[in-house]
Design a protein around this nucleic acid. Structure first.
Lengths: 205, 205
DNA sequence: TACATTACTGACTGGCCAGTCAGTAATTAT
DNA sequence: ATAATTACTGACTGGCCAGTCAGTAATGTA
């Protein structure tokens, strides 16, 4: 009954590690616990990852890249206006990320950036920059078409992403305190509503 | 030259601890380093704080409560309209917090909430709830006076606070990666501009 | 002066955990 | 069958660090 699905081991270990890193932080997570959650011994873990830090890097990389790919594809294929595109992208992101533990990665990166500058650099260049690029493209389309006001695009990108990040972060941090919190859907809807209204070029009634 | 300003020791230790906790996280911070930064030995630290966790709690409590007091006072004294009040509060918050290491506390709480549920609970009840109360009051005034649209107030509070939180968090996490980042003033101005536009009741040209 | 009190020190210890590696079990090859 | 290879184990160790405490220095007091 041992060693089934040979090539599945690393994925199982990374999933276990993501869970625990997100829940407890990097330093407070014991590799014994990671291995136990994946149903193997600590020694097995070291067959697939050179050390704790390499495991950490792998978790970050594998977890986040697929999401970006989806976003970039959506950008090239979507044929509605900028307003609708922005709305769809913000909601789709939560669909992809909010239903998994991937939502914990922003919290993890924020917590550990100081201790792992190289990982932070990697994340910044490969995740933040690409993610910001998606929003930048949408804003520029909207401004070019006259649908959006000519806001400061770079600043607006960060302002738009902040509530999305906080939504993801909340669940894995203080989210445990406020049980009565309204659901993410209401939050997202309100964010998008405020945002689109704020971006809209003055022309209505 | 030793033991000057007797009652200043705890404050010096807490300042040193805040710096290092924010920079490295709770688990990765050594009490030897905290003591060294405060210019004393580790033994001295234990004269003022029972253990590492008590030091952590003290840092959180002492750091954040004064800021809230300011906000609550502003609410009772300000005599402009809701629009101006909201703007002033968001900017003043950054003045108070952005110029000190207090800005690192949100990052710290987010990182460690899972490991210190009691501290998280305390922070939630005494900081988040009160902070949200400030914004709620402003929104309700604005909606009552017809200046703001009737948005979902509870959700809007979180959407409004998110960019403020991220501004504080950024500096102590991935902020080290993007040196070319525009200044916080531009970011804040864009946030407030988008927000006020988004909140405004439709009545303009 | 001597004695008491307060402030501080830093070597020490005990537990914890990342990382190792000699050994065992399962699988595959011959 | 037997050998060779691959997958996995878990007891062990070495370093690190929170927390201790016997001792020293400074200050206060009589």
């Amino acid at each position: 009954m041992r060693q089934r699905r040979k090539e599945a081991r690393p994925a199982e270990l990374m999933a276990a590690a993501l869970d625990l890193f997100v829940e407890r932080g990097f330093a407070a997570t014991k590799l014994d616990d990671v291995a136990a959650r994946a149903g193997v011994s600590k020694g097995t873990l070291y067959l697939y990852f050179a050390n704790k830090e390499e495991l950490f890097k792998a978790v970050i990389q594998q977890g986040i890249l697929p999401v970006l790919a989806q976003g970039e594809e959506m950008l090239t294929q979507f044929d509605g206006d900028a307003r609708a595109l922005l709305q769809v992208m913000l909601m789709r992101w939560w669909e992809l990320v909010g239903t998994t533990h991937l939502a914990g990665i922003p919290k993890l990166m924020i917590s550990e950036a100081g201790n792992f500058p190289e990982v932070a650099q990697y994340y910044y260049e490969n995740v933040m920059v690409r993610g910001r690029g998606l929003i930048r493209e949408v804003l520029q389309r909207g401004i070019a078409s006259g649908q959006f006001r000519a806001v400061d695009v770079e600043a607006a990108i960060d302002v738009i992403l902040a509530p999305q990040m906080m939504l993801a972060i909340w669940r894995y941090s203080l989210g445990s305190c406020d049980c009565g919190k309204q659901d993410p859907q209401t939050y997202l809807r309100t964010h998008i509503d405020l945002l689109l209204n704020g971006l809209m070029a003055a022309e209505k009634k």
